[in-house]
């Protein structure tokens, strides 16, 4: 096995300069002022910015494709949810934060549709197991993370609040679809 055991270098005693405090203070000042002026230049000119703080909410960071925000329901063009109320997400959820009451609706696309779809965001832990369980591509993790509320009731999201048109979820769906056909799938099915 490559690699070995190495002993950390530990000076038994600090050198004379280090014991004097002042040279070390100068060195540290050099490091910090280098950071300061570089950040300042970037901040003022707006080019090659190196300051780390993002001026939220004026500025926002772009989340990567894999990012998991609030789970939302995909809304079809006719305004109906794609969800067929099979309840798999309810089963998969470790914290039982999803509640579904299925029913039949007039003019609905499929035979079953969720009459009630409740998501308790005060319990949701954004693990994404519901998305993985969903057999219809009807529930996906959005990029939305801002849902602060003054009380717990405000964190209980109803179906209407969770519906998001398919167009707006394009990025997540593209990301998910890339992983649908995993190469290791056995030929000929189970």
């Amino acid at each position: 096995m490559p690699g070995q055991v190495i002993k950390v270098e530990r000076a038994a005693k600090l050198g004379f300069l280090e014991r004097l405090y002042l040279p070390m203070i100068a060195k540290a000042l050099w490091v910090t002022s280098r950071h300061f002026f570089r950040n300042l230049r970037g901040f003022v000119t707006g080019r090659n910015r190196t300051d780390f703080v993002v001026q939220y909410p004026e500025e926002r960071v772009d989340y990567p494709d894999a990012f998991r925000g609030i789970p939302v329901l995909v809304q079809l063009e006719d305004g109906q949810p794609k969800c067929v109320a099979c309840g798999l997400c309810e089963f998969a959820c470790p914290t039982n934060c999803i509640r579904i009451v299925s029913g039949e609706l007039e003019g609905a696309r499929s035979e079953r549709t969720p009459q009630v779809f409740e998501l308790d965001l005060s319990r949701c832990m954004f693990c994404g197991l519901c998305e993985e369980a969903c057999p219809e591509e009807a529930l996906v993790m959005s990029r939305e993370v801002e849902f602060a509320s003054y009380d717990r009731e405000g964190l209980r999201f109803e179906k209407e609040q969770l519906l998001v048109p398919e167009k707006l979820l394009e990025r997540r769906l593209t990301f998910l679809r890339a992983g649908y056909d995993r190469e290791c799938e056995p030929k000929g099915g189970a």
């Binding site: 096995m1 490559p2 690699g3 070995q4 055991v5 190495i6 002993k7 950390v8 530990r10």
Partner: peptide, 13 residues
């Protein structure tokens, strides 16, 4: 990890 080349640092005191 058996294939990876890395060292294990140790101290003495």
């Amino acid at each position: 990890y058996a294939e990876i080349d890395f060292d294990v640092p140790i101290g003495e005191v």
